[in-house]
Design a protein around this nucleic acid. Structure first.
Length: 218
DNA sequence: CAACTAACCTATTCAAGTT
DNA sequence: AACTTGAATAGGTTAGTTG
């Protein structure tokens, strides 16, 4: 495996989650450009860990981490030019820079998935609550209806039409008030509050409001 | 169009640091 | 000593280039 023979132009961040599933996706097919040779990049000099001799793994210093982190915040992907620049500035092998970025992207992605999970869980809780309320309301309405039916039978023929829709006060009506006027369901209301529902198929193509690029949690 | 190349990914290993 | 973290490796996938 080699990391250092080609480069891609600076890629503006995609605004969808699709890159989660295809990091290699290039929004500008055909513009990949051949660049530096091994000699030019200076990666011909293989560090001890890569040339067979057993050197122990060393942690990066806080200064190195700080600069790498700042660079990562600027752009999640690493172009060869930046890799070489960081390599010179930090006194690390370009390979180490590339590895650090790869591992950092993995950590970043894990955090993003964690965040996504929390958002979806919140959505689920809201909808689950709503379902509970609606079920309770249905029970109340059924109870009222059977009561009314009881009255009707007692009056012996004195039939009175009762429209449930018009006469029954909904216990959760207040909750829906404003959105009902706009013809919106509670679920849509949830969506309006900044969450959206999407299917697995949507996952690759639909941009998600809470997703920001490059949000870099750690 | 197959072979090559170089990027990226996930899964894993293992040393260093922490509890 | 057990657990956690993170640097590094292995092997696979993808996409652009070349002959």
């Amino acid at each position: 495996m080699d990391w250092h023979y080609t480069t891609k132009p600076f890629l503006p961040p995609p605004d969808t989650l699709s890159f989660f599933y295809n990091y290699n996706n290039n929004p500008y097919p055909g513009v990949e450009v051949k660049q530096a040779t091994l000699l030019e990049t200076g990666e011909g000099s293989i560090p001890a860990m890569y040339n067979g001799s057993k050197e122990k793994k060393k942690r990066l210093t806080s200064n190195q981490l700080e600069l790498l982190e700042r660079s990562f915040q600027e752009e999640i992907k690493l172009d060869p030019e930046r890799k070489m620049k960081l390599s010179r500035e930090l006194g690390l092998q370009p390979r180490q820079i590339a590895v650090w970025f790869q591992n950092r992207r993995t950590r970043w992605k894990t955090k993003q998935l964690e965040h996504l999970y929390n958002v979806l869980k919140h959505q689920y809780d809201v909808i689950s609550n709503e379902k509970q309320k609606l079920q309770e309301e249905v029970m109340k309405l059924k109870a009222m209806l059977s009561k009314e039916e009881g009255f009707g039978k007692q009056r012996l023929g004195g039939y009175e039409e009762i429209s449930g829709v018009e006469t029954v006060e909904s216990t959760s009506e207040g909750l829906r008030g404003s959105n009902k006027a706009q013809g919106k369901s509670n679920i849509e209301q949830v969506a309006d509050e900044g969450f959206c529902s999407f299917s697995v198929e949507d996952y690759n193509t639909v941009s998600v409001p809470f997703f920001q690029w490059p949000v870099v949690p750690y």
